[in-house]
């Protein structure tokens, strides 16, 4: 992370920057239906760190990852990954990175071991070396027992681990994970988080996209928030949180009329439970004043709780959209 590192190689960027992108643009469709998916995004990821691109569905996360992994071409802008240009040095980039996408990237009608051996052979390993590498990866991802079963029979969590293992046959410097835990149960998610932490501890650079704020908070050294094809914020989780009021006052109101009246003030809303989240610094004086301000008659607020701000609040403050939550953010 330190920029003051002595530069003893010809390509200093390669020493410190795993990813640097400037002004990436991408549109899909043609004519009137042309939609700008990425509208000029800049990204910098230091080597050996975990970087999270956070955003809702349709924000452009997958497109950004595919461009960085050379699977899609940007319409504009430049990007270097592992020191190589994604447009002109595609082959070198591909050798240095791996991408594990949202869709299964292994054959259901092959066993876990066969899939990994195939990937290793395609990576240029000899037959015996491929066999060894497959066995190592199965062991590392706790899949040795399942190695001889067709992957069609795997659980969602096992499949995701095998996907990830398949991406690691070439010992990539930069690992892209596109929504690695979407659709996983909480336990599988925890296991995957452990894997990501291990990869990072082993010195790999991890670039992961997620729509789960907690996931970015848990794993990432730095987080960039993507919304509608633009980066709306970037920083550590702590920095992002400090950009909004430190706390949130959740009030449950008495009726729909009160809910409608107070909704514009809220950063988080849940019509089903008549709950509204209001920003505050969390001190007793301010909370008391806020309650008096929104409910001078002492009629509308039924109960309240005070929370420290989550990344959810950050996200809403940054994108200017209150998310109507029917369920709490996932665990």
């Amino acid at each position: 992370m330190s920029p003051e590192r002595p530069l003893e190689v010809a390509d200093p960027e390669r020493r410190t920057r795993a990813i640097s992108a400037i002004g990436l643009e991408k549109s899909y469709g043609r004519g009137d239906r042309r939609v700008k998916v990425l509208d000029g995004i800049d990204l910098t990821v230091e080597r050996g760190t975990v970087f999270s691109l956070l955003g809702p569905n349709g924000a452009g996360k997958t497109t950004a990852v595919r461009i960085l992994a050379t699977l899609a071409d940007a319409d504009g802008g430049t990007a270097r990954v592992a020191g190589y240009d994604v447009r002109t040095q595609r082959r070198q980039v591909r050798r240095a990175v791996s991408l594990t996408g949202q869709f299964a990237s292994v054959d259901e009608k092959q066993t876990g071991e066969e899939n990994l051996r195939m990937m290793a052979r395609l990576g240029g390993l000899s037959r015996p070396a491929a066999r060894r590498r497959a066995a190592e990866l199965l062991e590392r991802f706790d899949l040795t027992a399942a190695g001889r079963r067709l992957t069609g029979t795997y659980s969602g969590g096992m499949r995701r681990r095998l996907d990830l293992a398949a991406g690691l046959v070439g010992e990539p410097e930069v690992i892209f994970l596109d929504e690695p835990t979407t659709g996983l149960d909480p336990r599988s998610r925890q296991e995957l988080w452990r894997v990501v932490r291990d990869l990072s501890a082993g010195g790999s650079t991890v670039f992961l996209t997620t729509q789960y704020l907690e996931e970015a908070d848990q794993l990432a050294d730095r987080i960039a928030v993507l919304d509608g094809g633009r980066l709306v914020a970037e920083g550590t989780a702590a920095e992002l949180k400090s950009r909004v009021s430190g706390h949130r006052l959740d009030v449950v109101v008495a009726d729909a009329a009160a809910y409608e009246r107070l909704a514009p003030l809220a950063v988080q809303r849940s019509a089903d439970t008549l709950t509204l989240g209001l920003p505050t610094d969390g001190t007793a004086t301010r909370v008391r004043a806020l309650l008096d301000e929104i409910d001078p008659e002492r009629r509308d607020v039924v109960s309240f709780t005070v929370h420290s701000a989550s990344l959810d609040d950050v996200f809403m403050a940054l994108t200017g959209r209150a998310k109507t939550t029917k369920e709490p953010t996932h665990v």
Binding site: R94, F103, A104, S105, V106, D107, L122, G167
Partner: peptide
């Protein structure tokens, strides 16, 4: 499927 992306990632 995702296999094609994996294969392309492997160049």
């Amino acid at each position: 499927g995702g296999i094609i992306d994996r294969l392309r990632s492997l160049d």
